[in-house]
Amino acid sequence: MAEIIDLVLLGMLAITAFNIIFIKDLFTVVMLFGIYSFLSALIFVNLDAVDVAFTEAAVGAGISTVLMLGTLALTGRKEKASSHKTILPLLVVCVTGAALIYGTLDMPLFGDPDNPAHQHVAPRYIEDSPQEIGIPNMVTSVLASYRAFDTLGETAVVFAAAIGVLSLLGLPKRDRATIQSGLKSHLVLRVVAKMIIPLIVLFALYVQFHGDYGPGGGFQAGVIAAAALILYALVFGLPMATHVVPPRVLKALAALGVLIYAGTGVVSLFLSANFLDYSVLAEDPVAGQHIGIIAIELGVGITVFAAMLCIFYAFAGQTERKNIQ
C-alpha cells in the first residue's frame, strides 16, 4: 500500500514540477511551488521522515511562498519570452539526466534493509540512543547531541543569511505614523486571524518543548512561530507588526539564539568535557543530555524565529516603500 501511495505522490510531484517550466505567469508558478512543497511533505511522511515533513510543510509552503510573493510584488508577475535558444540547455539537461539514470541502475535497491546506508553508524543510533540520550525521538538525539556541532554550523548559516538579507534590503523603521496597510476591509479574515494566531503560537511552543518525544524541535518551532507573526503582519499591516515585535529586538534575538547554543558548548568545555558534550551538565549523564538538548533546541528556535521574521520584515518593508511611492 505504501508503495502505491509513493508511486502516485511522486508522479503528482513530477507533473507539478513539469507545469512550472512552461507557465509564464509567475503568480501561478509560486502557487504551484506551494503545492509542490505540500506534496513533498506528504511524500516525506510516507517515507517515515516525519520531522522532515513537518519542516517542509512549514517552510516550503509557508515562508518561501510568502517571500516569493513579496518579491513578485516588487518585480512584476509576468515572465517575458526569452530571446535565447532552448536547444543547448535541453541538450545539457538531457545528457546529465541520462548519465544519472544510468547511475541509478547500480544504486542499492529502494527500501532494502541491507543497504550500505543502514549499516555502520545508523544501527548504533537506533539501538543505543534511547538509553544513552534518554529521549525517544532519534532524530532529535542525532540532531542535538551526536551531531550537535553540525547543527551549530547550520544555525550560524541561518543567522548569516538573515544578516545578508538585512544588509541588502535593510529593516523597516518602527513607525506607526506611516500609512495603514493590511486588510482593513476583510472583517472575516481579521476575526479568524485573531482567533488562530494565539493557537499557532501555542502550537509552536508545544513543538519546541515536545520535540524530544514526538516529531518537532527548534527548527520547526521557530518557523511556525514566525509564520504566526507573518500572518499577523499580512492581516493587520506591517506597522502594527513592527510595533508588537520591534525589528531591533529581532536583531538581538537572532544573535542571542546562536549565543545560547555556543554558550552551552562553552559551559561543557569549562566542566572539563568536550565542546557540546552535555553528559557533564548534571550528576546523571542522561539528565545532563536532556538539559543540554533543551538548551540548544531553545537557541535554535530563537535564532530561526528571529531570522525568518527579520527576512520577512525586510521584504515587506520594501513592498510597503513601493506602495508609498
Binding site: D48, G60, A117, I126, V142, T151, E154, F219, A307, M308
Partner: peptide, 18 residues
C-alpha cells in the same frame, strides 16, 4: 527507518529557505 538522512535534510530545508 534510518534517522541520519532525516537530520541532514531537516536542517538543509531551513538553511535552504534562508
Amino acid at each position: 527507518s534510518n534517522p541520519l538522512p532525516h537530520v541532514l535534510i531537516l536542517t538543509a530545508i531551513v538553511v535552504g529557505v534562508a
